[in-house]
Computed example of a mutant assay.
Amino acid sequence: MGQGELRGVVALDGPSGTGKSTVARRLAATLRSGYLDTGAMYRAITLAVLRDGVDPADGAAVLRVAEQAELHIGTDPNHADVRLAGEDVAAEIRGRKVTLAVSAVSAVPRVRELLVARQRQLISEARARIGGIVVEGRDIGTVVVPDAGLKVYLTASADARASRRTKQDSREGRTSTVDATLADVERRDRLDSTRAASPLRPAVDAVEIDTTDLDIRAVLDRLLDIVRDRGLRGTAARSAGR
């Protein structure tokens, strides 16, 4: 794969249900850049923890699983490649059991240190290979890449996020109700924003975008405008991509 159009790193943070994953992948595909879903890394480790019968609240045991896990995650925005010991787990990590346990696993400080180091390595490799990468998560602009050329924090009302998550679950064959999903969204927000290690919060210099009343195309257009204005799009950018 040759050089893409993005120069540097776009850090995209925010809670679930804001459209973060979809818009991050589409932004990366449009700019022919790398793409890294850091949340998938925490979910994969959580799956490994559950498979090993480890209590997600047992930090020491969780860390041992994380240190031994053979985790591979791809950086191609057109292919969700997440594997544990060579097994494709991209679909399984989105299940309810993992969703309910991932906050506890991701709150373990040493697990975060371990995965942040791996994330930085993947980011460095993508930048060297194709020039840029879009990275999404909950602490990208504050911890993983604090010097990113563009930091964005997506928000949306809890009701809107719950509605989106419920529709996504339905499309992917999972059964849930808006009320149950809203409870999950609020629980995850509370856990992620109050954890001691890398709590969910916008970077002080992040561009905040409320997606409550915006569709993915509108959010993508706004991000492409900001990327252009920041001078992060290479001179080889094609007009077809905006």
Score class of each variant (00 low, 15 high):
K20Y: 06
S21A: 13
S21C: 13
V23F: 03
A24P: 09
A29L: 06
T30V: 15
S33G: 02
Y35M: 13
D37T: 09
D37I: 10
D37F: 12
A40S: 10
M41N: 03
M41Y: 04
A44I: 08
A44N: 03
T46E: 02
T46P: 05
L47W: 08
V49Y: 06
V49S: 03
L50W: 02
L50N: 01
L50D: 00
R51N: 13
D52P: 01
D52Y: 08
G53D: 06
V54F: 05
V54S: 07
P56N: 11
A57N: 13
A57T: 14
D58H: 10
D58M: 10
G59H: 11
A61W: 08
V62W: 07
R64G: 04
R64A: 13
R64V: 09
A66C: 10
A66W: 08
E67R: 15
A69F: 04
E70K: 15
L71W: 08
L71S: 06
H72K: 13
I73Y: 03
G74E: 00
T75I: 11
T75W: 05
P77M: 04
H79M: 13
D81F: 11
D81A: 11
D81Y: 11
D81W: 10
V82N: 00
V82P: 00
R83K: 09
A85K: 10
A85Q: 12
G86D: 00
E87A: 15
